[in-house]
Amino acid sequence: MAENISEISSAPTPLIQLRDVSKTYRKSGTDITIFHNLNLEIKAGDFVAVMGPSGSGKTTLLNLLGGIDRADAGSIAINDEELTHMSESRLSRWRADTVGFIFQFYNLMPMLNAASNVELPLLLTRLSRSERRKNVETALQIVGLEDRAGHSPKELSGGQQQRVAIARAIVSDPKLLLCDEPTGDLDRGTAAEILETLQMLNRDFGKTIIMVTHDPEAARYAKRVLHLDKGHFIEKELSS
């Protein structure tokens, strides 16, 4: 896997482009507008933290970028592919090729061991069993869990489970990592380790990372912080 992970991109064209994106939910007969004409550009190789109050649309934004939710209007282009009109099956293939998800609660398959969990995205490729095994080993090495390959999620700590989830997200070498509160369920020390791992993936392997978080400490690991408020972004530069 390591050989396949792309080097830091210096391409100037944005990896992610949102144009006039609108999203409305209907709840109890009332329309709730999350975004109205939202615009955003994120360059390849960026590490962006998205913050904002509850209900500001952080997770909705992540879902739209990951192609697991659809915008009502506007255009979402990622890696030069327009998501808005993609069929469900095309979106599934696109997700498999382009995006790695990291969730707050890890979402590992409890009945599979760490290696089998990491292998899941590779089952969507034409790689042979030995190639898959090699890539899984590399991904687990990157997150420092090569000696836990045979352990089930129950036998791992929260931090280790999140590392397995990160290995699963990067094993098929996607350009984009979408992280939804990746440290929300972890203690401060473990959270720092996870965030350092994400930083390393961004720095050393050129992964573009969008991370939703409530935690200002976590946001400090990103290159940029975007604050979502009432459906609009307010960008804040980080001091260091």
């Binding site: 469900e88 599934s92 997700r95 498999a96 998800f101 969507l124």
Partner: peptide, 10 residues
Amino acid sequence: TLRAIGFSST
């Protein structure tokens, strides 16, 4: 989770 990873609805 499987669907998000890219597994199809089929």
